[in-house]
Design a protein around this nucleic acid. Structure first.
Length: 317
DNA sequence: AACCCGTGGCG
DNA sequence: TCGCCAAGGGT
């Protein structure tokens, strides 16, 4: 959960998740849909799918006990260098370093590394540094302290060097360029799309579909729709998408709400329309399941954040 | 190596 | 409104 996600955001999710799946076996035997429902709103849903798979492998290959060595941890889906080091050192007291965004920033400043830390050669250097700095005693505490230093003191924008216990030995601060490190390469421009979806009603029920198991928002439910093409009106785009993807005809009643949303590598403006079913038998184009559900049952399904916003608008009216 | 993959907070 | 960033991993 903590991968690319701040501790404060994870907190409540962790509590609910551990109540629902208190053991590896409970998690392994749960349905993926139930796991995704607990993960709903956290993002990067492949983490949930990987954790579910990992639970199964822990059960089969390790007798239900999480392995303690970094090498064994690395064999589990969703566990990479950082997570393996974190679990081995924090949970099991092994002497393994961790390098996350915080540690990268702290070490780039401490040693005044002026190269792009995304480059693999530089990553190697940072891991090597972290390993050499790591004491034999309480490696987990040391790792957490280093990350905490990064998240609380050695801030990305305006580091609080006055409060930093390492300020006397920080090479970047010695040169006064701590705020410019680590150097970040120019980001690519993010595309923006206009998306239309329909809240389609038929006899008091609403049509939702389940996304493919992999890829963007994999395994989550959504209101059907798709991208608008250039020169197309919103309504025409919606009718086309519903016809192509779901195979039914609808009547568009009115606009429900408009949501601006940013994903990891593009942005959308999402227009949701209230619609009424007209004719045709719903089928799945690229989706894997499709259902008519009662409005009060929407909360049983895992929706992405932008769709949750639409449900809020639905309840508000 | 370069992409893909969410969401919320912050300035 | 926008870019940046977060206890990264998979392909």
């Amino acid at each position: 959960m903590l991968q690319q996600t701040q501790v404060a955001t994870v907190g409540p999710y962790y509590e609910c998740f551990m109540r629902r799946f208190p053991t590896v076996e409970k998690l392994a035997r749960a349905r993926l849909d139930a796991v995704l429902k607990q993960w709903e709103g956290l993002g990067y849903y492949s983490r949930a799918r990987n954790m579910h798979r990992a639970a199964g492998e822990i059960l089969e290959r390790f007798g239900g006990r999480l392995p303690e060595t970094k090498d064994e941890l690395l064999t589990l889906p969703g566990i990479g260098a950082y997570t393996a080091g974190a679990v081995a050192s924090i949970a099991f007291g092994r002497r393994e370093p961790v390098v996350d965004g915080n540690v990268t920033r702290v070490l780039c400043r401490l040693c005044r590394i002026q190269d792009d830390p995304k480059k693999s050669a530089v990553q190697k250097e940072i891991w090597s540094l972290a390993e050499r700095l790591l004491p034999a005693a309480r490696p987990g505490d040391f790792n957490q302290a280093l990350m905490e230093l990064g998240s609380e003191i050695c801030l990305p924008r305006s580091p609080r060097c006055d409060a930093c216990p390492l300020n006397r030995m920080c090479q970047a601060r010695l040169h006064g360029d701590q705020a410019e490190l680590p150097i970040r390469s120019a980001r690519k421009k993010i595309p923006r799309y206009t998306v239309v979806v329909g809240v389609i009603r038929k006899q008091g029920r609403i049509l939702i579909d389940k996304r493919k198991p992999e890829g963007l928002l994999g395994g989550l439910w959504e209101f059907p729709g798709g991208k608008k093409k250039r020169g197309e009106t919103l309504e025409a785009a919606l009718r086309r998408e519903i016809r192509e993807e779901i195979g039914i005809r609808i009547r568009i009643e009115r606009r429900l709400t408009t949501v601006d949303h940013a994903y990891s590598h593009f942005r959308i403006r999402l227009h949701a329309f209230e619609c009424v079913y007209v004719s045709g038998a719903p089928r799945c184009g690229s989706c894997t399941d499709i259902k008519w559900v009662r409005p009060t049952d929407l909360n049983r399904y895992a929706f992405p954040a932008a769709n949750a916003e639409i449900i809020r608008a639905l309840r508000a009216q």
